[in-house]
Design a protein around this nucleic acid. Structure first.
Lengths: 341, 341
DNA sequence: CTGAAAGCGCTTACAG
DNA sequence: CTGAAAGCGCTTACAG
């Protein structure tokens, strides 16, 4: 077991001072060429690499980004992480990931843990419980301490920081309008509980699309699902009793559940029932029939969020305190597949 | 902007020494009760939390686990991370995640980056390229330096460390035997290129099951896929020309592609063609028909790996140098769904 | 051209 | 009961 070598050891071995070693390795011209090369050769031989922790302490920056998301086993969030990781890596940052499991307490705990030295800033998407409680003290606190935060997807207006979202309302509007253009009249909405910010916005888009096209709005056609696994009955009732000819589902898990239920009942998709899902994921692409979706590029959101965060991180160095926060809107578009004709 | 408060500041404010503050906060009995309570109250008021980085440097342990995996947008790997994160959290560890993108160079770079102070140990699954090159110097180096490594799923015999796997050969054997019991005679295998360790083992299991049941082995029934997206033609040929009645696919993406191709050709699944996939993921559960799979619990693997790593981390503290590495085998079982009758 | 000193934020063995 | 000192591994302004 050969432990990692430190500056101190090199200095001792070569009988020079630690400062000299440090400077030589940083190629300082202060140091004579002979010494410099000698030190560099030695360091290379022993595969010296500076200790990140020591550097972090010294520089007061860790070059790591904290990511706090509700779930990782979720295609959308994985792609976001992918996007973040990609630009972070390019710019020499690492990412440290914490999951809130949609729990407020876990979100707070994780945030506090990371805020104390572990990361330079945060990229996060709010947990359901946080959105429900509307308690954001942990986030404002971190911002107050001078750490930048970028929120994406599940955000709140109550915190001032950079944000990356899609235009949920508009995207939902377009999806529903697309169904209307196909001649569908009785369009149901299958969505989440209301306090999830994006759920709310998508509902607004749905409603507006109906109104603008003078399709009667029927509250009974909106169903809110708390847990997919127990939703089959509710969905079954919707399909059987309400004589609907299209569904707009707020995520693809809902959509595929509707698809399978329709199948059982004997409805043909898309003939009897057209389906559009929000969030283009792996399920929609591989289900039978494949499902038309609103693409919501997680990778793009992640990249954008990382860029915004790093930009703020690096500009802060110049003590550039502009408190003008931006909200970036990522374009969505419809991916037409077999579940609509 | 109120910066985080440090021991030094508290000391100054309260006109005591830094040592006294530190000891008070750690509830040392060395310090008089009055001082102790005063310091604690003050610290609480200013929401003092020790700086993780400083602690890491001092203690020479970071309490974080480095995870290096090929891909995050992959149900199996997400569930593994979930499992790791869960036990890590319980035991007070954070996780820092790096993706290799199945590239050798990225794997090496990430490992070196993290090895220099950022983590106490690693949990990893090898990139394809690493398995192909059989170059593991970056891993042995880290181990030589005294950092424990736990490998899972895509492992190698050439590195001595703790490992968590499933019995790929046995699981494949059982899956194929299940098909045979159903009366299937011409069973194809759709697998990955050979250097992926698990692919090789699953092929072995497939072959053995055939032999043991005196089913003629036909090399033409094995196809190796490099890239799913361009595999439809190869799969189409297999289905049309080879008169097969069952397929064992080495992952669910292959399986669902087969399923869709069969559909197009007009084959009924499971009547004309039975399908079993390795790795139980979200696609198998939601496809139509649903796909029978070999469960390979990523969550369990992750949990186990984290337990093993942390156990080694904590026992090292007692300088307990037992070089007896273990390989844990996680049980698999068949989840019967609609793609087999 | 080289090195001693201070400092990042903490802990702890040792004096007093 | 309290504090000065050393040290974790580094960098850098300052002496010489």
């Amino acid at each position: 077991m050969k432990k990692k070598v430190t500056l101190k050891q090199i200095a001792k071995e070569l009988d020079v001072s630690i400062s000299t070693v440090s400077k030589s390795l940083r190629n300082s011209l202060e140091i004579g060429e002979e010494t410099r090369l000698k030190v560099q050769a030695f360091a290379k031989f022993y595969n010296y690499k500076p200790n990140n922790i020591a550097l972090s302490l010294k520089n007061r920056r860790t070059k790591t980004i904290g990511i706090i998301i509700p779930e990782i086993v979720h295609y959308f969030f994985s792609t976001v992480i992918n996007g973040i990781e990609q630009v972070a890596n390019e710019k020499g940052y690492s990412v440290i990931i914490c999951l809130s499991d949609d729990s407020f307490d876990k979100e707070v705990m994780n945030m506090e843990l990371l805020a104390h030295g572990s990361t330079d800033g945060f990229i996060m998407s709010l947990s359901k419980e946080t959105q429900f409680k509307k308690d954001f003290h942990h986030i404002t606190e971190v911002i107050d301490q001078g750490m930048p935060v970028v929120m994406f997807d599940r955000i709140t207006d109550e915190v001032h920081c950079d944000k990356v979202i899609i235009d949920d309302k508009k995207a939902a509007y377009e999806a529903v309008e697309y169904l209307i253009k196909l001649g569908r009249k009785r369009i149901a909405l299958v969505t989440t509980v209301d306090y999830v910010s994006v759920g709310k916005l998508r509902t607004d888009g749905y409603t507006k699309a109906l109104l603008d096209n003078s399709i009667p709005f029927d509250e009974q056609l909106i169903i809110k699902i708390e847990d997919v696994d127990t939703s089959e009955i509710t969905i079954g009732k919707l399909l059987e009793d309400k004589a609907i000819d299209a569904v707009f589902a707020v995520n693809e898990l809902f959509a595929v559940t509707i698809l399978k239920t329709a199948h059982k009942i004997g409805l043909n998709v898309p003939k009897d029932l057209a389906i559009i899902a929000f969030t283009d994921g792996i399920i929609s692409k591989y289900s039978t029939p494949t499902i038309t979706t609103v693409s919501q590029s997680g990778a793009k959101m992640g990249k954008k969020a990382a860029e915004m965060l790093i930009q703020r991180l690096e500009s802060e160095e110049h003590d550039d305190e502009d408190e003008i926060y931006k909200t970036e809107i990522i374009e969505t578009h419809l991916i037409e597949r077999e579940s609509t004709d």
